[in-house]
């Protein structure tokens, strides 16, 4: 295990060292590349003047707010469609007509309706997060052990309690898998919206660094965005394993 993780580090380290040496040897002057040492310095600089932390806060706030809204909507519809086959079949065409719209295509609509800022970004993130949650939670509710539903019926649980006490706990591991997927999407969409148009957060920061011809700062932002994406993913995978263990794996194939 340890030998393998050491081997995994060989390639990135070799690339970094080779790049540093090459950049030093050729006295690299470029608008798009910078040696790793300067990237690290730029990253420290951005931390020191707090600019990257503010940007991170803005991006994560938009991403999580959108994630929360999108997950809630997706979950509500997913559970409703999972419980009622009739509703699911009736809504099929509507859902299939809206779902393929690429989230980023809503950007201009959100822009004229809400203007620049958090709100339009949150709306777009929420739209993108609805679908994975809706589809996976629908599948999760459908695959609930039928006997649990029979128990609910035998106990004459009212439907609110049936959802709360039987359906959500039974489907929770797979719903969490959907949440994990959506969280990744939320970050991606938030950064994309910022890069495309919205003047806040990490995406705007990296665009600004590019326009200011600061390749070191631009690549520092890129590295930092990568670190955040990776950390978010690791955090959610760990949480999933802690909370649900193997129970969640059944949903991964869906």
């Amino acid at each position: 295990m340890r030998a393998n993780s050491a081997k995994a580090l060989v390639l990135p380290l070799a690339v970094l060292v080779a790049f540093e040496v090459w950049a030093r040897a050729t006295h690299l002057q470029s608008d798009s590349l910078a040696p790793p040492s300067e990237i690290v310095m730029a990253l420290f600089g951005a931390f020191a003047d707090l600019s990257i932390l503010t940007a991170t806060r803005d991006t994560l706030f938009s991403a999580f707010a959108g994630l929360a809204i999108g997950t809630t909507i997706g979950l509500a519809f997913g559970i409703a469609f999972g419980i009622s086959d009739t509703l699911d079949r009736l809504m099929e065409v509507t859902v299939e007509a809206i779902r393929p719209i690429p989230s980023i295509a809503l950007l201009p609509i959100a822009l004229i309706a809400l203007g620049f800022g958090y709100r339009m970004e949150i709306v777009i993130v929420a739209f993108a997060c609805v679908w994975p949650v809706l589809i996976l939670s629908r599948a999760a509710v459908r695959s609930i052990e039928p006997r649990l539903m029979e128990v609910a019926r035998a106990l004459r649980l009212p439907s609110a309690q049936r959802v709360w006490k039987i359906i959500i706990p039974a489907a929770l591991p797979r719903i969490f898998v959907a949440f994990r997927l959506s969280a990744g999407i939320a970050l991606i969409v938030a950064v994309t919206v910022e890069i495309a148009i919205n003047p806040l957060g990490l995406g705007a920061g990296i665009m600004l660094a590019q326009q200011a011809l600061r390749p070191d700062l631009m690549l520092a932002y890129l590295v930092w965005i990568g670190v955040i994406g990776y950390a978010l993913n690791v955090l959610l995978v760990v949480a999933q394993n802690r909370l649900f263990g193997r129970a969640a794996l059944s949903g991964d194939g869906a």
Binding site: S32, L187, I188, V191, I195, L202, G203, I206
Partner: peptide
């Protein structure tokens, strides 16, 4: 997030 490669 792959879109972060766009500025580069």
């Amino acid at each position: 997030p792959v879109s972060a490669i766009i500025p580069v």
